[in-house]
């Protein structure tokens, strides 16, 4: 796995640790992959934020990159450092997101511009009212079935992430990404509810 042209002594202890974790991940050890992801997520997040200039887009690209790298870890041949390979995947995901103009982000951009509305100034009673809960339920009916199902299982039904992912037959990472997107889509819908002066 390590590049035979580079003597072991020339590699840093971090690189050697990465190589060890990559071998375990390639053998199907998800814990090892999670450790790899944790070791490089801060670096990747900074890079993706620089490209997208948007926290959510950077976050989405990172989730997609981690998912893609886990799925393709078997193809990683060790010709570059793992961090370089992961970064390349992340950058591709970030540019893919920018190119296709992810519908959800466009929706956010169109309705909110750069500024996220401040709901926090409202009293707690607003968020406990039947009217707000009705808006939440209506919003849930309006987002894509794939996202709504993830949100319903986790937040309304109270399943754990693992239970909900198993129920959908997908991995926890994919489930978390779906859940977050669903919550964000619903949040954007509720932004419009508040902007409309609760008139629904």
């Amino acid at each position: 796995m390590p590049d035979p042209d580079i003597p072991t002594a020339a590699r840093s202890s971090d690189e050697i640790e990465d190589e060890r974790l990559v071998l375990r991940a390639q053998a199907g050890d998800q814990e090892a992959f999670n450790e790899l992801a944790a070791r490089h997520s801060s670096m990747l997040r900074r890079i993706l934020f620089r490209i997208t200039k948007d926290c959510e887009a950077a976050w989405d690209a990172m989730q997609e990159a981690l998912l893609a790298s886990w799925r393709n870890i078997g193809r990683f041949e060790g010709r570059s450092k793992f961090s370089t390979w992961l970064t390349r995947i992340g950058i591709n995901e970030a540019y893919r997101g920018l190119r296709k103009g992810n519908a959800e982000l466009l929706q956010l951009d169109d309705s909110l511009g750069e500024r996220v509305p401040d709901w926090g100034a409202r009293p707690d009673e607003v968020f406990e009212s039947r009217e707000f809960l009705t808006a939440v339920a209506n919003g849930l009916d309006g987002i894509s079935d794939e996202y709504a199902t993830a949100v319903r299982l986790r937040d309304v039904e109270g399943l754990s992430t693992r239970e909900a992912a198993e129920a959908l037959g997908i991995g926890e990472r994919a489930f978390k990404s779906r859940l977050h997107r669903g919550r964000m889509a619903l949040r954007a819908d509720l932004d419009r509810y508040f902007e409309d002066g609760y008139a629904r």
């Binding site: 939440v136 937040d155 309304v156 949040r187």
Partner: peptide
């Protein structure tokens, strides 16, 4: 911006849990 996003997301999830 992210502070507001987090706050709003937290309110959203709180509403969903209340629905449950």
């Amino acid at each position: 911006n992210c502070e507001r996003m987090f706050q709003n997301l937290s309110r959203t999830v709180g509403g969903l849990r209340r629905l449950g």
